[in-house]
Amino acid sequence: MTIAIAFGDLVKSYGKFNAVDHLSAEVQQGRITGFLGPNGAGKSTTLRCLVGLADPSSGSAEIFGKKYRDLDNPLSRVGTVLDSRGFHGALSGKANLKVVAAAAGIPDARVDEVLQMVELTEAADRKMKKYSLGMKQRLALAGAILGDPEVLILDEPANGLDPAGIAWLRKFLRSLASGGRTILVSSHQLAEMQNTVDDVLIINKGRLIAEGPKEQVMGGDTLEEAFLKLTGGALS
């Protein structure tokens, strides 16, 4: 199997505090990997280091053996949804995507295409700040697939989605993955993750505590039970 994403002894510290603490882990190509951990475990920080928005204090975070910053035209290889979404409230959803499309050399027709894929066509011309939380999340997903990337990095994409939205997201991720894409997705919705992911990667207090195929990590329990055992059942 090919390794799509690799963390090598990654450390990100804020002052004396290590938000990510010597994390080494791998994400296999063509699989959906659930990135799990209690609040404050360091998931978002790890992902922000991976895509070059935060500088690692030491160690490495690489995609296809390269730093994100060294990928040429990264949007065509990696699509990202972070907790901070990166869109301008005063612009329409469509205008926001057109700004990104222009920068990545992606034709405007693709903007309409992805808006349709996330079922936002009707709201495309409304100001982003007037979107509901779920609509903002869909817009962020549209931005992530704009360049038809082979890797998706999603930080809590289910956040703010209603049950129908979560079901929609599950189908959406599966259809993306069935095309051979690699998806690294963080979430707190463990029952949902158990249905969606192939592999899991669990961290706590910035450290790796479990990694591997879902069945192996679960060991007969549900994902939630396994997670609570591994993390001591407490929030860090």
């Binding site: 901070s84 979404r85 990166g86 869109f87 005063a90 926001n96 931005g143």
Partner: peptide, 12 residues
């Protein structure tokens, strides 16, 4: 507006 995130993801 936080658009720096999208800007630097697209052009790191």
């Amino acid at each position: 507006h936080g658009t720096a995130v999208a800007t630097f993801l697209t052009a790191p």
